[in-house]
Structures are given as structure tokens and as C-alpha cells.
Amino acid sequence: MLRSTLIRTAIAGVAVLGLAGCGGGGDQLGDNDAGSSPAPSKVSSITVGSADFSESQLLAEIYGQALAAKGIEVKKKPNIGNRETYMAAIKDGSVDLVPEYTGAALAYFDKNSTETDEQGAYDALKKAVTPGLEVLDKSPATDEDTIVVTKATADKYSLKSLADLKPVGKDMVAGGSSEFKVREAGLKGLKEKYGVEFKQYLPLDAGGPLSQKALLDNKIQLTNLFTTQSVIKDKGLVQLDDPEKILPPNNVVPLIRTDHKSDDVATVLNAVSAKLTTDDLTELVKRIDVDKESADAVAKDWLSKNPLT
């Protein structure tokens, strides 16, 4: 996702720690990295990281709390940054586990991939990840990139599809994250697949309050949001159809260093993935972004209501 792949508001209440949702990738981990080692039979501790948006921090909390409940020491490094930043951290061993999204991660590891099928993207991702890293079971829960306009803008320009932007883009200002400006699931794809160019681009944030306010105030007419964000429904925003499929499928999936993928760790994380739903994510993210609950408290509540065994 552009979260690849995405980026939203950091959670002020997330407790813990250290290190501050696609370009090319695929480079191997260094010879001295533990990621070159085989999967261990058991691990005693694991460091869980997250991107700098609330849903990633929520997922990292769920992973960490579920592992801690099984007696594994968990260290947390939330709010690391965008995909390029947290990928560097997992490659160098600063973190051992991060939440990821299938299509966005695939675009990072294989910039030439054109896979648009949900299962196909997952299968391709398993093959594309850097040696020393692995993905575990994908969840049925998804959080897709979506490109949105207000209803007023949709009505003004008769917009239903991204293809409808071609004749009117020159009159519109787009805005969002720095990644949305340059990635395939963004302005790059809009230009290459739909022939769309905009009058101006305002650098804001990835689906966060800056982009949302600018869109609602008509300072920009188009931005990238994520399908689990309640603002889409609450504000009546219009999600433009994507017939050329520049927006990839994005199932939630744990990305882990092989040297920390013991059977007990994999079992716990796969159980989380099996239980999690898109409706869950939508509700939980709203509790963080709108109701201002902390990610750790929301994760704890979800786990109490969704026992893994």
C-alpha cells in the first residue's frame, strides 16, 4: 500500500521506544546479518516495529501483545517511518518483525511486478522477499489504497473513474504524501496508465489530517486515502474506480526475519492473521484516529475479545 507503501498520524499514546503502509528492492541481507541464518527452533525475544501510521502501530501492538502472552519477551519500536525506512531497519536487524501489506510489499521487493490478483500477489511476494526475510500467512483483512475526491468535485467534473480525470486533471490540485507523488499506485501510475497530469501537487501526509483537511477545504481536489479510514464514509467522499488496476491488493501480512521465525512465533502470528477482519481494522483504526484511544489499549481489547486458542 502506499502506506508502501503508507503513512498517517503517529499515535501519541503508544508506549515505547527506540527508532524514530515502493521503489526497487530485492537486495540480499549482508553476510553478517542474522537474517542469513535458518529459522530457529525457539526464540526468547523479538523486536516488533511499525510504520508511522496508526493502523501499522495497532497491528504491531496486536502482534507484540499476542507474542508476549506466550512468554516471549517483546521489545517495541513503533513509528519508524515509511516503508523504505522500516525495511532498512528489518534488513539490518534493528527490528525482527513488522506488519506489511501484500501488494505494497511486492511492489517494494519487485518493482516490475504487475500482479493484481489477491492470491497471486501473496504468492509472488513470498518469492520476491529478500533472502533472510519471510512473510507468514496473509490475513483476510485488507486495507487498500484508494484515490478519492469530494462529492462536490465528483459532481463538478462528472468523476466516477480514474480514467475520467484525464481531461480535467490540469484544472485540479492533487496532494498527499511524498510517496503518492512518485509511486505506481499514485501520480506515476495515473500519468502512465491514465494519461492524467495535475495543475499542482501539494506535499502533505499519507491519508492523515493534513490531506483530509486540505481535501475537505478544497485546497486540493484529490488525494490518496485507505479503505479502512472512517472519514471516507463519514464525509461522503467518492472513491474513484481503477479499471487499469494501478492500486494493488493489500492483505495484512507479517514480515519477519527468518532468524526469529520459530514455530511458536509463526503459530501465534498466523492465528492473529486468521482472526483479523477488514471490519475489525476499520473499527479499531477509528477508535485510534477519531476517538483518540491508544494503540496498545485498542490492541489489548481486540485480543481479549478474539482469543487465539
Rank of each mutant, 00 (worst) to 15 (best):
D96G: 11
A60Q: 02
R83H: 14
Q28I: 11
G35D: 02
D110R: 05
S113D: 11
V43K: 06
E61L: 00
N112E: 15
G23Y: 09
Y63S: 06
K91Q: 12
I80C: 04
K70Y: 05
V48Y: 01
A34S: 10
S94H: 08
T85V: 14
S56A: 10
A124C: 03
L125V: 09
G81R: 01
S45W: 06
A60T: 03
G71D: 04
N112S: 15
D117E: 15
Q119I: 10
D123A: 12
T85L: 13
T102W: 00
P99G: 05
V95E: 01
L58S: 03
N79I: 12
A60L: 04
G35W: 01
N79C: 08
G24M: 09
G24R: 09
V43E: 06
T130S: 15
I90A: 09
L29A: 09
F109E: 13
K76Y: 15
S41Q: 15
L97W: 03
I90F: 11
L97G: 08
T114K: 15
S36H: 07
L133F: 08
D123W: 04
T47K: 12
K111R: 14
D27H: 10
N32C: 09
K76S: 14
D117T: 13
G120A: 09
P78S: 13
K127I: 02
D123R: 08
D117S: 15
Y86D: 08
G71P: 02
A124E: 02
K42N: 15
S36F: 03
V98P: 00
L125C: 11
S54G: 05
E84G: 13
Y101A: 05
A89H: 12
Q57F: 03
E115M: 11
T114A: 15
D27I: 11
L133M: 10
E84F: 09
K70H: 14
A69F: 00
T114P: 09
Y101T: 01
D33I: 07
Q57I: 13
T102C: 02
G132I: 00
D117V: 10
K42T: 14
S45V: 03
Q57E: 13
S113P: 13
S54Y: 00
S41H: 10
G26F: 11
G81Q: 04
A51Y: 03
V48P: 03
D33P: 00
V43Y: 04
T47L: 03
E73V: 15
I80W: 02
A39M: 08
F53K: 01
V98C: 07
D33L: 09
T116C: 07
F53W: 09
K126H: 06
E61M: 08
G64C: 05
R83C: 14
A121D: 02
V95H: 02
G64Q: 00
G26T: 14
L106Y: 02
A124Q: 04
D31Q: 12
G64L: 05
G103E: 00
Y108P: 01
A69S: 12
K126A: 07
T85Q: 13
G35V: 01
V48N: 05
D27Q: 12
S44K: 13
G93F: 03
A34V: 07
A128I: 04
D27C: 08
G64K: 01
A68M: 06
A51H: 11
L59A: 07
A104Q: 04
S54C: 06
V74Q: 07
A39I: 04
G23K: 10
A51V: 00
S45F: 07
G24S: 14
D92H: 08
A107V: 05
T47N: 05
T102R: 00
